Computed example of a mutant assay.
Amino acid sequence: MSTVVNLRTARKRKARADREQAAGENRALHGRSKAEKLRDRLQAEKASDFVEGHRLERSDRGKP
């Protein structure tokens, strides 16, 4: 004798597992820790400040 399977529940369980697998893949591809994000932001700010400091004409001169 075989067991009765509720197809609606089985479909929901499979969809949930598929979404969890996709989320795991996205976390692995795009996930970064808070420290990595902070490091990248600080590096970008430092580079921007360096470039701004070496401009010949400053953009804030014309402002009153």
Rank of each mutant, 00 (worst) to 15 (best):
L56M: 15
V4R: 06
V5Q: 03
K37D: 02
R13Q: 14
H54R: 05
E36K: 01
G24Q: 10
G62A: 00
L42A: 02
P64D: 13
H30C: 07
V51F: 09
T3C: 02
V51S: 01
E45N: 07
E20R: 09
A10G: 01
K46Q: 12
N6Y: 04
A28R: 14
S33M: 04
R27I: 05
R8K: 08
R55K: 15
K34E: 12
S59D: 12
E52D: 05
S48D: 07
E25Y: 14
L56Y: 13
K37P: 00
L29H: 07
S59Q: 09
K46D: 12
N6W: 04
N6D: 14
D18V: 06
G31R: 00
K12W: 07
K46E: 14
M1Y: 07
Q43T: 10
A23G: 01
R16V: 13
D49K: 14
L7D: 11
T3Q: 06
D40M: 09
F50T: 08
H54C: 09
R13L: 15
R13V: 10
G24A: 00
K63W: 13
L56Q: 11
D60V: 01
L56T: 15
R61I: 13
V4F: 15
D18L: 13
E57S: 13
R19Y: 12
S33F: 02
S59H: 03
D40N: 07
A28E: 13
H54L: 01
R32V: 11
A17W: 00
K14E: 14
K12D: 02
R27T: 00
M1P: 04
A28I: 14
D49C: 10
K14A: 11
A44G: 03
Q21W: 08
A10F: 03
D18T: 12
R8W: 02
G62E: 08
R19N: 08
R55C: 07
H30E: 14
R32M: 14
M1R: 09
G24M: 07
G24E: 05
R39H: 09
A47W: 08
K14D: 08
K12L: 14
A10V: 04
L56F: 15
D60N: 10
G24F: 01
E57C: 13
P64C: 05
D18K: 03
A15Q: 04
A35M: 06
L38Y: 05
A15E: 13
G53N: 02
A47L: 13
R58H: 11
E20V: 06
K12C: 00
A23T: 11
Q43P: 02
T9C: 09
G62Y: 09
H54I: 04
D40F: 10
M1K: 04
V51L: 15
D18W: 05
R55A: 08
K14Q: 15
E45S: 04
E36T: 05
E25Q: 10
S33L: 05
R41L: 07
K46C: 03
R13T: 15
E57L: 15
N26H: 12
S33V: 07
E45P: 00
G53I: 00
A10K: 12
Q43E: 15
P64F: 12
R16M: 13
K63D: 05
A23R: 03
G53M: 04
K37L: 09
L38M: 11
E36V: 02
D49I: 04
E36A: 05
A28V: 15
